[in-house]
């Protein structure tokens, strides 16, 4: 595991040195700033509006970060041949995948925490209180971000980055649907749609922006279960990604 840890740090350093991270982070923070400056709301509603759309913005930020950070990692490594000396000798394929994943996951989590901090500052700036569940909600979005990151890695082993973006976004959208909604996409084949939905994740598990915006208390055990579910699904996606990677010839 030491090799994975060192490679994750190497990935982390590399990603911090790329402009992609800073560009996406700036876009998210600007979007949060824009949300807070929407006029014509009284104090109570403005707080809800900022929280609701702010958390939504952070969630979209998680998707953008996952794609921006990871969609090009493996294809670039192959294209520039930096992969060969790594895979041939010091790292095995699972160590490469985990190292890249952990590095990107740490960067993504740090960036999302910064956006959460940005949201808190915006609330304070408007004289609003910070809900107790805002930080746990951000943690849940971070776990959702890791799930998306693992999905991006999965697609990156057999598609190009321009295809990875729509595929991951499509999975992100589909995974928000309930079983009934998903079946309605193709009502003529309900059995098939249910079978497909079975494999797709239930990303609605990570959605708690509505209750937070409306002041509902969420039971702490829910956070634990949702985080467990998200981590397990991420592990599942990573193992699928590894299965594809292990089967690939590195020409």
């Amino acid at each position: 595991m030491k090799a994975v840890f060192i490679f994750a740090l190497m990935t982390l350093r590399m990603l911090f040195r790329r402009r992609t991270l800073w560009g996406i982070l700036l876009v998210i923070l600007l979007a949060l700033g824009a949300i807070s400056s929407v006029p014509n709301f009284d104090v109570s509603n403005q707080g809800r509006f900022i929280l609701d759309f702010g958390l939504f913005g952070i969630e979209i930020g998680a998707l953008l970060l996952a794609l921006g950070l990871a969609a090009n990692l493996y294809p670039r490594d192959r294209e520039t041949r930096t992969l060969m000396p790594l895979i041939a000798v010091p790292l095995s394929r699972w160590q490469y995948l985990l190292g890249r994943f952990f590095g990107a996951a740490l960067v993504q989590a740090a960036a999302l925490l910064v956006t959460c901090l940005g949201l808190m500052l915006i609330l304070l700036f408007h004289g609003l209180s910070i809900p107790n569940d805002l930080l746990p909600a951000t943690l849940l979005i971070i776990v959702e971000g890791w799930f998306l990151l693992s999905t991006v890695f999965f697609f990156s082993f057999f598609t190009s980055p321009p295809l990875n973006w729509p595929l991951t976004t499509m999975l992100f959208v589909l995974s928000q649907m309930s079983v009934a909604e998903f079946v309605n996409v193709l009502p003529s084949a309900p059995g098939l749609m249910r079978a497909v939905r079975m494999i797709l994740p239930h990303a609605d598990v990570f959605h708690i922006k509505d209750p937070i915006a409306h002041g509902f208390e969420i039971e702490p055990v829910y956070f634990l279960i949702a985080i467990f579910y998200g981590l397990c699904y991420s592990i599942f996606m990573l193992s699928l990604a590894l299965a594809v990677f292990r089967g690939r010839d590195l020409k």
Binding site: C232, Y233, L238
Partner: peptide, 10 residues
């Protein structure tokens, strides 16, 4: 479901 996905992954 989480436990099933975890087991499948392993």
């Amino acid at each position: 479901d989480g436990a099933i996905f975890l087991t499948l992954g392993i």
